[in-house]
Design a binder for these strands. Structure first.
Lengths: 137, 137
DNA sequence: ATGGGCCTTCCCGCCATGGCAAGGTCAAGG
DNA sequence: CCTTGACCTTGCCATGGCGGGAAGGCCCAT
């Protein structure tokens, strides 16, 4: 199986497969005499694992850890759970951060006329003038 | 006012001030004979504006737009509001994406024993095996 | 033998920022 | 005057995950 077929079978682009190999996330596969990479079903399975982990927002480093645990039949599920719950905490921290931005901005936008006049509480807030309707915090 | 003083006064690092100048976000300031950048209070005000916009998650491009509107006394507040509400939509889309990840992961983690046994629904999900049955690898 | 589709490596771009290095400048103190 | 140390200058490298593209090799069908 060439890299293109593995890419189509796994949903990971050929470019990314090479990249994952280069950073040590997946092992270097065998090569043909013409130096083409050769993949098998297990490789495709691992690539799909990576794709799914990435789609859940795990970094490549975390994905590498998970891949290691996946391959380790003697793993403790607690180790997997620790990675997952830490990532949930990271996600929730990021969500809270974005929500704070959105909340502030929505509040400011609500108080903006949104017409042809130049007066704008959004710009007032950004400029730090603290003029009329600044909603900080 | 040298760049270091402007950095301390604005909360934007000297490195970033130079970067913002290089990408055209802020205008190139005057220089001393020794080629040192010279800033005044208005520059610091603009830098604080940028810092606040960045802290609300606006990209540099959006920040540039907002800076232009800020400086344009004939602006229509509708233009500002449009940038802000679009950004709110972007933020909310990102939030929804992260929440979907967190939801899935929390669900999986809840069903993981988290003990010394190797069986783990998180890995099962990532490996695409399906839900609970296959513990073979 | 030629065309096209695949493969290879290598480099550049994104975004926003930090870090480091080599050199110039300035003010204070010995 | 000279040193010291804090500051400034430019420039390059790195991050994280990709995408794009160039230049060249390989394979298969016509």
């Amino acid at each position: 199986m060439n890299i293109g077929q593995a890419a189509r079978a796994s949903g990971v682009s050929a470019k990314m497969i090479r990249y994952y190999e280069s950073v040590g996330l997946i092992a270097a596969p065998g090569r043909t005499q013409a130096n083409y990479r050769v993949y098998d079903a297990a490789d495709v399975h691992a690539l799909r694992f990576v794709r799914r982990a990435r789609s859940l927002g795990f970094s490549l480093a975390e994905t590498q850890t998970l891949l290691g645990l996946w391959r380790d039949r003697a793993r403790a599920s607690a180790d997997v759970k620790a990675v997952a719950t830490q990532h949930v905490r990271d996600l929730e921290a990021k969500i809270a951060e974005l929500q704070a931005m959105a909340r502030t901005l929505k509040h400011l936008a609500e108080h903006c006329h949104g017409d042809g006049r130049p007066d704008c509480p959004i710009l007032d807030d950004l400029s730090g003038d603290g003029c009329c309707a600044t909603a900080k915090g």
